[in-house]
């Protein structure tokens, strides 16, 4: 019961961060499954077709959920971000930047691992981008709940 009140007490921006976090999490799980299928089971697949198709589907889901939340609280959705929300965005982006930086360097480092190829490097880079974005949304959620 308390979780219902918790959801109702959320601001539009926090709900938006939750939606983005869940949608990106879903995409990450699908992407990991795809990479495992290609890497370990050598599944015949068109990677670009899979990537674009999944990306479009998840983006459509995210837009749909945002529209639904905006209909629930239209006034908040129309209101521009205030100073606290902008500060939360900046802090979250700063944390995500360091995650991306470490991930990018680690991806470059894969060229020194024997047996790795361009596919591994690209997937490591993709993993870094997804981790950085997940970190950004997670930090936004934490800061919305705590303070700025």
């Amino acid at each position: 019961m308390s979780s219902i009140f918790y959801i109702y007490s959320m601001s539009f921006r926090e709900k938006s961060a939750w939606i983005s976090f869940y949608c990106l999490g879903l995409f990450t799980i699908l992407w990991l499954t795809h990479v495992a299928r290609v890497e370990f089971f050598r599944a015949p697949d068109n990677p670009m077709l899979w990537f674009l198709g999944t990306l479009l589907a998840v983006t459509a889901l995210e837009i749909g959920l945002h529209v639904w939340v905006a209909i629930q609280s239209p006034r908040e959705a129309r209101t521009p971000k205030d100073e606290r929300e902008r500060l939360i965005d900046m802090k979250a982006s700063r944390v995500a930047f360091y995650v991306l930086l470490v991930g990018a360097f680690a991806s470059i480092g894969t060229i020194h691992i024997p047996g790795t190829n361009r596919f591994t490097m690209v997937q490591c880079l993709m993993g870094s981008i997804l981790t950085a974005l997940l970190t950004r949304f997670a930090t936004q959620i934490v800061l919305h709940r705590r303070d700025a």
């Binding site: 908040e76 209101t79 100073e83």
Partner: peptide, 15 residues
């Protein structure tokens, strides 16, 4: 011109 959550955070001394 801010959100209710921001007013609440200011009031509680969190922001």
């Amino acid at each position: 011109g801010v959100t209710r959550q921001t007013v609440n955070a200011i009031e509680l001394g969190k922001y």
